[in-house]
Simulated scan of single mutants.
Amino acid sequence: MASDSLTKLVLFACVLLLTFSENLVAGDSDKVKLNLYYESLCPGCQEFIVDDLSKIFDYDLYTITHLKLVPFGNAKLSDNLTITCQHGEEECKLNALEACAIRTWPDPIFIQGQLNVRISFWQITLDVRKLSMIVKMVIFRERYLILRYATQTISLKPPHEYVPWVTLNGKPLDDNVQSMDDLMAQICKAYKGKTALPKVCNSSALMSKSPKRKVWKLQVLCR
C-alpha cells in the first residue's frame, strides 16, 4: 500500500489534473503544444506536476499554451492489449482515474475558478482505497482512453527515455532546458499567435542567460 504521504501527493496531483485540458478550444491552433507523458506513481512526475507545471497557470502561460497530459508513461502494452504498469496495478487504476478527470473537465478556466490549486496536498486526507469503487467503474469505461494514450506514448519519435517526458511542439526538451524558467522562456519564444504574451514573457529575469539560473528541481526520473 502506498504511504500516507504518497497517497496525498497522488491525490493532489489528481486535483491539479482537473485544471488542465486535453481538448482543443477555439483559438488553440495557434498555441504552443506542450505535452507531458507521465505515470501516476512516479515520484518525479508527481513533483513536476505539483511544483513546476502548475506555474503554467501561476504566470498565465495557459493563455498561449495547449497543455496535453498523457497518463501512460513506462507502462507496457502486450499483443492482447493487456497493460502492465511500472509501479503495479495501483498505478494502472490511478492512470485510468486521471484519464477520466482529463476527459470530464475539458475547460481549464472553469475548473481553475472552482479549485484553489495552491491548496497544500498535505491537507488532503482521502485514502486511495476509498476510491476503489469509483476506479472499478472508470477502468472499463475509460479503457479506450488508456489505449489511446498508450498508442500516443509508444509512437513518440524519438521514443521517450524516461518520465516525466515533456515535448514542446512535438519535440522533446533539449539539454538547454534545465529549469522551469528555461521551459517558460522556450514557451514564450515558440509562441507565434496573435494573443498578447503574458507579462512573464517580457521579464528580463526570465529571458536572461544568467549563469545563476536555478537548477532543475526534477531529480527523480522513472525509467
Score class of each variant (00 low, 15 high):
73 G>S: 07
71 P>V: 01
129 R>W: 00
119 I>G: 03
57 F>S: 01
116 N>C: 08
85 C>P: 05
138 V>A: 12
52 D>K: 08
65 T>N: 08
93 K>Q: 12
60 D>Y: 06
77 L>W: 08
74 N>R: 07
50 V>P: 03
44 G>A: 02
41 L>N: 01
128 V>M: 10
114 Q>D: 07
119 I>W: 02
124 I>F: 14
130 K>W: 07
35 N>R: 11
111 I>W: 12
97 L>F: 14
82 T>K: 13
69 L>Y: 07
117 V>I: 14
64 I>F: 02
111 I>R: 11
45 C>I: 07
78 S>N: 06
127 D>P: 08
49 I>S: 04
98 E>C: 08
71 P>I: 06
38 Y>S: 01
118 R>Y: 12
117 V>M: 11
63 T>S: 14
117 V>E: 05
63 T>N: 15
121 F>I: 02
119 I>T: 14
84 T>K: 07
72 F>I: 00
132 S>H: 05
102 I>R: 04
76 K>C: 02
117 V>Y: 15
99 A>D: 11
81 L>C: 09
35 N>Y: 04
37 Y>M: 05
99 A>N: 12
47 E>I: 06
61 L>G: 04
67 L>C: 09
74 N>T: 01
39 E>G: 01
43 P>F: 09
43 P>Q: 13
55 K>R: 13
54 S>D: 04
77 L>T: 14
109 I>Q: 14
38 Y>C: 02
136 K>R: 09
93 K>H: 14
38 Y>H: 13
136 K>W: 00
120 S>H: 14
50 V>T: 11
132 S>W: 03
49 I>Y: 05
45 C>H: 08
98 E>R: 11
52 D>E: 15
42 C>S: 09
119 I>D: 08
65 T>M: 02
77 L>C: 10
36 L>D: 06
110 F>G: 01
48 F>E: 03
114 Q>N: 12
53 L>F: 15
62 Y>M: 15
